[in-house]
């Protein structure tokens, strides 16, 4: 399997451990990620607040580049994923806009490529099968609260790869790793996203609620698929201290991949004590 990889801005910065673990896991699974050449910002943050058309133009350029390589795009960040998906959809549905974009970027949109999220791809049945065969140290006894975040599986008419109210794909990955996903009901509740900077009080309230809910459900750990979710959970739980790992970190841990220690050291809430207590650290 080969994909045009769209890393996005955080993968080498604030979500470094997400990026590193993604690389390692995909390599081990034989999922080839070919970084999109000369990719630009997807427009999810400032552009989308300031200029409607700009927020579509930016990701359209990436779509045009990906089309050259004739591969589907895979993005680890849900916001990049949503924005690129939306841009692709607009090209399909809005003829006038498509012609404008084609003229602007000098390409002819063929609609063959799709935009996927990393979790979508890594939870496909054949990938899970492969994953199970590569698990060296099953995460037995580890109770995981799969946290999808509010953006990943909505709106269902556009994303369409998991239930929007009670998604299951990350839970299936956790099961494949030998962990126990808990059936908690806050899987798609918002963490506060980028209000972490402007309204920290809201993020604290939401993060605390998520922490308490995960604790009530008996979870040892969060599994995340989004950079800002991970940061908010990592830094804004007022009454609990439940570690938040990227699902790819857990995959890497179970597969016994090198570099795990480096990823785990990047967390504000150190996950190592919990893992050690379960006997899951080498």
């Amino acid at each position: 399997m080969k994909y045009a990889y769209f890393p996005g801005c955080t993968i080498s910065t604030t979500a470094l451990e997400f990026g590193l673990s993604t690389d390692a896991v995909c390599q081990a699974l034989g999922v080839e990620l070919i970084e999109l050449e000369d990719w630009n910002c997807c427009g999810a943050s400032s552009a989308h607040s300031l200029d409607h058309d700009l927020s579509y133009t930016l990701p359209t350029r990436n779509v045009a580049i990906a089309q050259k390589g004739e591969l589907d795009i895979v993005a680890p960040c849900p916001a990049c994923y949503q924005h690129t998906l939306a841009a692709d959809l607009r090209l399909r549905q809005d003829e006038a806009w498509r012609r404008e974009m084609e003229a602007h970027f000098g390409f002819s949109y063929n609609g063959k490529g799709r935009t996927r999220h990393l979790l979508e791809v890594l939870s496909e049945p054949d990938v899970l099968k492969q994953l199970r065969s590569l698990v060296k140290r099953p995460l037995a006894g580890l109770k995981v609260a799969s946290y999808y975040g509010c953006v990943l599986v909505r709106p269902p008419q556009i994303t369409g790869w998991d239930d929007p109210e009670n998604p299951q794909r990350m839970d299936r990955v956790m099961e494949a790793l030998g962990a126990e996903p808990v059936d908690w009901s806050y899987k798609v509740d918002c963490c506060g996203a980028s209000m972490a900077l402007s309204r920290a009080d809201i993020v604290i309230r939401l993060g605390t609620r998520l922490g308490e809910a995960a604790k009530e459900a008996g979870a040892d750990m969060f599994a995340c698929a989004c950079g800002i979710c991970q940061i908010n959970l990592d830094t804004r739980q007022a009454t609990t201290k439940i570690p938040a790992l990227y699902f790819t970190e857990l995959m890497g841990l179970a597969m016994g991949l090198p570099g795990v220690n480096k990823w785990l050291s990047k967390h504000a809430i150190d996950p190592r004590p919990v893992l050690r207590a379960r006997g899951l650290l080498p």
Partner: peptide, 8 residues
């Protein structure tokens, strides 16, 4: 807008 369940 939504109902959440306490697992215990």
């Amino acid at each position: 807008s939504a109902i959440h369940q306490k697992l215990q």
